[in-house]
Design a protein around this nucleic acid. Structure first.
Length: 815
DNA sequence: AGCACGCCGACT
DNA sequence: GTCGGCGTGCTC
């Protein structure tokens, strides 16, 4: 094999052909990282995707500089997976590579060189550059490529390095990968000798003029005596802001306390007692038997379990079995932060063999997990969508929890793939079983499971025979007509909340819109406050007293007078969660009302603090956006109120009804988890709307049937396949022309009714880029593959127009 | 994606 | 006269 197809971490499609030098031919394998020159002066870490003997015809292939791994770092299952992703989602392999790898595993100019040990350099036969480099390396043992730029002309760097490697004088430093030692965490304890030397009174006396130091000392002492085996993290001391590091330092200087370090993963893994999982209920046993049966037939599973039906128990059972068989498990979550329960349970049972992988890890930590997965040191990996790309050795089970969650398919980061669908494919490549689980499965998954593409398993009762919450619809129009309202709340709703609070229970108020008011409008001239970067109105945030653009994040101060006509008649329109929070606070002045949305949770530990407040029942009412639908599993929440439920439905999106159903059901799952007396109040102008009526009936099969009928009627997924192409550019007329052109090309190849648009995007300008969209509605099945090839052809034709190359193009498959 | 090349406006 | 703006083209 003389040539290799190498994928580079660039947003370029396909792979590049390189020549394999003879010395490394015996070692090179698909899935290894290699160093290759690219362009005039760049060196990249690429991945070998294919080895072959076909010499390129139109260009001269450059040579691979060196191999970085002694074994493939990307297993063949992942190679297949990457190829599938690239094919299915029409994205470049380079994009996938960039997304999949922690950046330190694809170092470019950070690559280090060193002299080979025990060599004698024959300076006579070196050129100037080669001599410079050798001399530099004699002074400093390690040099990276950026440093080399200082004394060798850019264009000669690669040539110089290559020839010195050929001469066996220098080599690529292999320590790069080993540089990442386990992170150490600081812990604190009372100095062992201090209590023998002095008695407590003396110590406290000596600290009497330093109140905080005294408090801190006592705090540590108390913790330590409480449980002598517990290690006290240094960072924990400063969490609530009362103590600062200076207080600790003073104590340490006086030798009262000391700090010590331990490796993080050694301590964070649980080594307490191992708790046995409670026995499954009859319904759960039945469901588990069905899962077994499905796996037997090599079928994947959609586990549809109503809120608190104990899907987790079933996951845990299957995870246990999988590990018994000596295989590994991937447990996918939409977000890592809101998952204490399951991770705690898994940690208790499997301790050290658990790994976490998510977007919040530092690069350091990511590489650590990579290493451990590669060494098969992790049995269960809990992670978010980027965990799909770890180099698993023998994956036996993938669980996708909350499979309907939109966090599995963020719109803003490429490559644009749906982690739920990708998990099914990855499972197939690994011959692993996949369980999708949710209380409100996505319509697509539900349909596929009903179509026997997966096994559909329904857990319809809550664990421990707790009743499901009851739904009630409040006709707001009627309440308004009979003057039984106060602001956005009907008297009935207020009454019910009051009743809940009187019984010493807690209530949740859901309003899914950030900010205080949606629009600030001038009553005199009609002026509204637009974002200067985007074609959207700015939202008024009263708490922060500023205007925010929810799309580009721009902030501005709130205008006191109309900037156009200087009138002071500024009117606030459109209710946001801040305003609902304000109203509730006024309605219940004697109760503790807290707000939970991205804006109020931005501060460090804000979420943890509020979580504890609710847990300790200091909070009576939580007002929040969709954030409150996740993770708030408390025993005393009995009421969920949705004062403006209509706002969820009238969104320009064919999934609006599905989303409304999912959000309402998810948030209702917070109520009556123990008592079984949970109540959900949906206040609406349209109590007759099918979605509300169906939610009230609490019969999921009927809702899905209704939504599916609507989707079929209007030719939406899952009955068709949607591909959305979005074009963006700074100049409006340029994108407009480009999208018209692309539209006409597409229509040339595809039937007319498949191509919709181009149209201005709903947000015509975002971050100063004008956007146009073309929607493709394609039939399913064999035709789809055929049509997709034509779409690819059209895009190619479009890309050939040089004038349109500066236009940013995003393709969303399965929009 | 980066980077070089090349062609036009505002400055020593 | 030159520095630097960004449109265009190319990278195995």
């Amino acid at each position: 094999m003389q040539y290799a197809q190498i994928v580079l971490p660039l947003n370029l499609k396909g792979s590049f052909t390189y020549k394999v030098p003879e010395e490394i031919m015996p070692e090179i394998q698909v899935g290894m990282r290699v160093l290759v020159p690219f362009g005039g002066k760049k060196i990249y870490t690429g991945i070998v995707f294919e080895l072959h003997d076909n010499a390129p015809e139109n260009f001269v292939a450059k040579e691979v500089i060196s191999i970085l791994d002694d074994k493939p770092i990307v297993p063949k299952e992942q190679i297949n997976f990457w190829n599938w992703l690239s094919d299915y989602y029409l994205c470049g392999l380079g994009e996938i590579y960039r997304f999949a790898f922690p950046s330190s595993l694809k170092l470019e100019s950070e690559t280090y060189l060193k002299l080979k040990p025990n060599i004698t350099v024959d300076f006579e036969n070196l050129d100037v550059n080669e001599m410079y480099l050798i001399q530099a390396l004699e002074v400093r043992q390690l040099i990276n490529l950026t440093d080399i730029e200082a004394f060798i002309p850019k264009k000669d760097i690669i040539k110089t390095i290559n020839s010195l490697i050929d001469l066996q004088y220098i080599e690529i430093d292999e320590k790069i990968a080993e540089k990442y030692k386990a992170k150490e965490v600081a812990y604190v304890k009372i100095n062992d000798e201090v209590l023998q030397r002095q008695n407590l009174t003396e110590i406290l006396l000596s600290l009497k003029r330093a109140q905080k130091q005294k408090d801190l000392f006592l705090h540590i002492l108390e913790k330590q005596t409480e449980n002598p085996d517990l290690h006290i993290k240094k960072s924990e001391l400063f969490e609530d802001g009362y103590f600062g590091s200076s207080h600790f330092k003073s104590l340490a200087d006086k030798n009262f306390v000391e700090e010590y370090y331990m490796q993080k993963d050694r301590i964070e893994s649980y080594d307490g007692e191992i708790e046995e999982i409670e026995e499954l209920s009859e319904a759960q046993k039945l469901a588990k038997a069905e899962v077994d049966e499905a796996f037997e037939e090599r079928k994947n599973v959609l586990l549809h379990g109503v809120t608190s039906s104990g899907k987790t128990h079933i996951y845990l059972e299957k995870i246990g079995e999988c590990i018994q068989e000596g295989k590994n498990v991937l447990f996918l979550l939409p977000e890592i932060s809101l998952t204490k329960q399951i991770t705690q349970r898994l940690e208790k049972k499997y301790g050290k063999n658990i790994g976490f992988y998510h977007q919040k890890l530092t690069d350091f930590e990511r590489v650590e997990v990579w290493r451990r997965i590669k060494q098969n040191d992790i049995k269960i990996l809990i992670g978010t969508r980027n965990a799909l790309f770890l180099p698993y050795q023998n994956l036996g089970l993938i669980v996708v929890d909350e499979e309907h969650d939109s966090a599995y398919r963020p719109r803003e980061v490429s490559p644009y793939f749906n982690a739920k669908d990708a998990a099914l494919v990855l499972g197939n490549f690994y011959k692993a079983n996949v369980i999708l689980g949710s209380a409100t499965p996505s319509v697509e998954s539900y349909y596929n499971a009903r179509k026997e593409k997966m096994k559909y398993i329904f857990l319809e009762e809550r664990f421990g025979n707790v009743n499901l919450p009851e739904y009630e619809l409040i006709n707001f129009k009627e309440a308004q007509d009979s003057k039984k309202v106060s602001g956005n709340f009907s008297l009935q709703l207020i009454d019910e909340i009051k009743k809940t609070l009187d019984e010493k229970n807690q209530a949740i108020v859901l309003h899914n819109r950030r900010g205080y008011a949606n629009v600030i409008e001038c009553e005199t001239c009609g002026y509204v406050n637009y974002c200067s970067n985007c074609d959207v109105v700015m939202t008024y945030h009263k708490a922060a007293n500023e205007m925010k653009c929810h799309y580009c994040g721009q902030r501005a101060s709130k205008p006191k007078t109309c900037p156009k006509c200087y009138s002071e008649n500024l009117n606030e329109r459109g209710v946001g969660v801040e305003q609902i929070h304000e109203e509730v606070s006024k309605l219940f002045p004697d109760n503790e009302v807290d707000r939970m949305d991205v804006d109020s949770m931005r501060k460090k530990f804000a979420y943890e603090k509020l979580y504890e407040k609710i847990e300790d029942r200091e909070t009576d009412i939580v007002v929040g956006t969709q954030m409150i639908s996740k993770g708030l599993d408390f025993d005393h929440i009995e009421l969920v109120a949705i004062p403006k439920a209509d706002s969820m439905l009238y969104v320009q999106d064919f999934r609006a009804e599905e989303r409304a159903y999912q959000l309402i059901t998810q948030v209702s799952g917070r109520a009556g988890r123990v008592s079984g007396k949970g109540k959900i109040l949906i206040q609406t102008f349209n109590p007759d709307h099918s979605v509300f009526q169906l939610i009230k009936m609490n019969n999921p099969a009927k809702i899905y049937k209704y939504i599916l009928t609507e989707r079929q009627k209007f030719h939406y997924p899952p009955f068709t396949k949607l591909i959305m192409i979005e074009l963006k550019h700074r100049k409006e007329d340029k994108v407009n022309r480009a999208s018209q052109f692309l539209g006409s090309v597409l229509r040339k190849y595809l039937p007319g009714d498949c191509v919709l648009g181009p149209e201005k995007a709903q947000i015509a300008r975002l971050n100063n880029l004008y956007q146009f969209q073309i929607m493709l509605k394609l039939p399913k099945g064999k035709k789809y593959e055929e049509y997709k090839k034509l779409v690819l052809l059209s895009l190619k034709e479009f890309e050939e127009i040089t004038a349109y190359q500066s236009i940013k193009k995003d393709v969303f498959v399965d929009f």
